[in-house]
Design a protein around this nucleic acid. Structure first.
Lengths: 160, 160
DNA sequence: GGTCTAATACTCGGATACTTTGTGTCCGAGTGTTAGGGG
DNA sequence: CCCCTAACACTCGGACACAAAGTATCCGAGTATTAGACC
């Protein structure tokens, strides 16, 4: 029950991409965060498939958010990178063994599965309640007003 | 982000162990649920280490709950089997790269980590709010009053 | 017949292979840029 | 001087190895039972 490590990178990328007008290449994002460029590219591909970021090819290409940061939830990013499968899968144990329950009597989900799914829903709701813009605001509050603009300037600066 | 499959087995075992006066061997629990006996034994060892069940050795030995089912939460079982580590680990990305934050200015946790940990807490709280006794009650409501007694009789019956 | 003893059969516990998932990397397809030549 | 063209450099995307954790299994240590022998 451990979350994929790439989720953290993807979230950081989305926060710094917020407010960016020009595309930012994956290699530059990797350099900024000091992480593996190849592996980060994989995570960004996940975000692209999910439609959270738009990839622009070509010489001055890169990644760009598809919509406002306030319209992207943390849950969107987590599900894009880690998959949207449920954390608990019910194998219908109650229908197996010598005292197996009849399939016809199993219209309602197994009580155990219901508890696990409720917890899963609470987890997702907590992540859905926070947007990338909210996180960026927290960062500003913690690191100062000019922190994010400096980051944007660094990402936008062309080093060629 | 998938939960170990053994968690489901362990939960089913705890539910049927509730109300049992005599120890139940792991092999019998496995036969009842029609699952691998060897692997189920591993999960039960986890429950034993966590102090949720008490193992009795010898010819008529087996497993027994250490306390009332109403005093065992679903979270206890999940953490015993799957480990109590956090689902999200913060690698302090903000302290890396060209614009790294000073460690001295990182007294508060990273905003991203805070969001993830809040969601983690919500998930755990939802699991902590439900006890094994609650689940057993749900089973009775769904499968009838005599369902669980029949199971207990089957588990207690000696087939030698 | 009662009691002590020893062999037994059954239990859990940890140490050992195998499969699946996650981690990390690489090279090829595609496109905007840009330099050069021609009109 | 302006425009067209072609080569280029840089981008993403998916396919390819490696490592770690989950899954499944086995055999050894320990104990209550039980049968037998002795008193």
């Amino acid at each position: 029950m451990k979350l994929s490590g790439g989720v953290e990178w993807a979230l950081h990328c989305c926060v710094v991409l917020a407010g960016m007008q020009r595309p930012v290449p994956a290699a530059r994002l990797a350099e900024f965060h000091d992480v593996s460029a190849s592996y980060l590219a994989k995570q960004l591909q996940g975000l692209s498939r999910a439609g959270l970021v738009r990839s622009v090819q070509g010489q001055s290409g890169g990644y760009l958010l598809t919509r406002a940061a306030s319209e992207i939830t943390v849950l969107d990013v987590v599900e894009a990178v880690d998959g949207d499968g449920r954390t608990f899968v019910c194998t219908e144990v109650r229908q197996r063994g010598p005292l197996a329950a009849e399939p016809a009597s199993c219209t309602a989900p197994c009580p155990i599965a219901r508890v696990m799914w409720n917890a899963d829903r609470a987890w997702r709701e907590a992540l859905r309640a926070v947007s990338i813009a909210d996180v960026a605001e927290d960062v500003t509050r913690a690191s100062g007003t000019e922190a994010l603009p400096r980051v944007r300037a660094w990402l936008g600066a062309v080093a060629r």
